[in-house]
């Protein structure tokens, strides 16, 4: 009993430490990245909501669900990719201009929406 409460306490303190340090570290990221992060979270949220909705209502318009869900997921993936490309702390994409990265992103986004529209109806 004791050990369990201890564990939970440990866990709590650990978690608080993590959250705190994460917060403090995260403040260092540039604003631009933060904007992207906001959209990433948004995309994830919509995806999760749709999934829950599907669980409640059932899978009937399955193609609509798929297109909606994958649309959010795709947007999420693309944003993550973009974030990694423009993240100044990363070393992999030194020579890449953010504008070029964004152009790629737009291209992919258009493609994604095209496919989604095609599939939704």
């Amino acid at each position: 009993m004791d050990s369990v409460t201890n564990r939970i306490h440990d866990f709590k303190s650990n978690a608080s430490i993590i959250v705190k340090s994460f917060n403090s570290e995260y403040k260092k990221t540039p604003l631009r990245i933060k904007v992207i992060d906001a959209f990433i979270v948004y995309a994830l949220l919509t995806a999760a909501i749709q999934f829950l909705y599907m669980l409640c209502v059932g899978t009937f318009p399955f193609n609509s669900f798929l297109s909606g869900f994958f649309c959010s997921l795709g947007f999420f993936v693309l944003s993550v990719s973009l974030r990694m490309q423009v993240d100044p702390s990363s070393t992999e994409f030194k020579g890449l201009l953010p504008e070029r990265a964004y152009a790629d992103f737009v291209f992919c986004g258009c493609l994604l929406f095209l496919v989604v529209w095609n599939f939704m109806g």
């Binding site: 909501i49 209502v57 669900f65 909606g68 869900f69």
Partner: peptide, 9 residues
């Protein structure tokens, strides 16, 4: 039934 999905898109 699919309106939420359209909304999300």
């Amino acid at each position: 039934a699919a309106y939420p999905y359209y909304m999300s898109v």
